[in-house]
């Protein structure tokens, strides 16, 4: 079965970036007194005059835990131009830790992921509870390279490690009445600063919830990731376990999941609740249906490269995975069910 993305040709050779380059700049900023100073014209990592109002300068409660190496069936990645690991782990939308792209990498280490509990319940034959160790041991782990297309019109190419969502659902046993699967992110305001302050968390309703139709969830592309770049997930990428649905916009790929529930009715989903005219339940990547505020016809592929080395590519229907998933929607008006 062809699981990895179908249009390999558009990716050039694998490129790497040097972690030092990133750290260099921060050190420099610190020396210049720019970081956190809320200066007249600020650096993008502190992009606002008023950031000092929300920055909590309390020392981090915990040291970041280094990701651990995983045992998995590796993939030959020589044909892909991957997004460098440093960018994958330092440019995140995870509003539980703040709304800027740098917030998650700066604040997510406060989250305790071990012990963890993930329950699969609702319309299943038997309820399952997975603890932290189970997440890495219960299923054979494999590596998959997917392109993640954000609704904000950028994308990254990421080597995930994990297992099929279908494998887990089959183990629980899908009852005949089950039509939808809902997912819930951990709710722990003491460790997730965005949940304890509306100012930091962008005023979206927490806990974050997402959902799939059961046939979407059973599609072999739907993936539960426990790692990336061969190691367990950094917290900012949704540790210890997250969803990856590569044919849908990134916000469907919910992070740090504690609850999976099968149900008869369509679950409410976070972004749909906050802006129903902008974010639908389905959220399939679709170049023909624009976001009300920007075009979805093309996207900027984030690889490595500065201002003069940018790749703008055409967005593909279902993010290039149409062959595997288009049949799920064959009688639907995708303009209405966006």
């Amino acid at each position: 079965m062809k699981i990895i993305k179908s249009n390999r040709s558009q990716f050039k050779d694998h490129q790497i970036t040097d972690e030092d380059i990133f750290n260099n700049k921060r050190d420099f900023l610190k020396k210049m007194g720019f970081v956190g100073a809320g200066s007249l014209i600020t650096s993008p990592s502190h992009a606002g005059l008023f950031d000092w109002l929300k920055s909590d300068d309390t020392p981090p409660k915990k040291d970041p835990e280094p990701p651990k190496p995983l045992n998995f069936k590796a993939l030959d990645k020589s044909g892909f131009e991957l997004t460098p690991e440093q960018k994958v782990t330092h440019y995140n939308n995870f509003y539980e830790f703040g709304t800027s792209k740098q917030d998650p990498s700066e604040h997510a280490h406060n989250l305790t992921t071990n012990p963890w509990e993930l329950t699969i319940s609702g319309l299943v034959e038997q309820k399952i509870t997975l603890n932290y160790e189970d997440l890495f041991k219960r299923f054979a782990l494999e590596e998959r390279v997917y392109r993640l297309r954000c609704v904000e019109a950028w994308s990254m190419v990421i080597p995930w490690v994990g297992f099929s969502l279908a494998d887990l659902l089959k183990q629980a046993g899908v009852s005949s009445g089950a039509k939808y699967v809902s997912f819930k992110t951990l709710h722990r305001p003491s460790e997730m600063r965005g949940q304890s302050s509306r100012l930091i968390g962008g005023s979206i309703p927490y806990p974050y919830t997402e959902g799939l139709r059961i046939d979407e969830a059973m599609n072999p592309l739907a993936f539960l990731a426990v790692g990336l770049y061969g190691k367990s997930l950094p917290n900012q990428n949704g540790a210890p376990i997250r969803l990856v649905v590569p044919w849908k916009y990134g916000f469907k790929s919910i992070k740090s999941i504690t609850e999976i529930k099968l149900s008869k009715i369509m679950p409410k989903t976070t972004w749909n609740l906050s802006a129903p005219n902008e974010y639908g339940f389905y959220a399939n990547v679709n170049p023909d249906v624009d976001h009300p505020r920007w075009s979805q016809a093309s996207e900027r592929l984030i690889t490595s490269g500065g201002l003069f080395d940018q790749q703008r590519i055409k967005t593909l229907p279902f993010n290039g995975y149409a062959e595997q998933v288009a049949h799920l929607y064959k009688d639907m008006d995708l303009r209405r069910h966006f």
Binding site: F22, S45, V88, S304, G306
Partner: peptide, 9 residues
């Protein structure tokens, strides 16, 4: 390319 992951944004 030292301005965060997305130097354009």
């Amino acid at each position: 390319d030292q301005n965060g992951a997305d130097p354009v944004k």
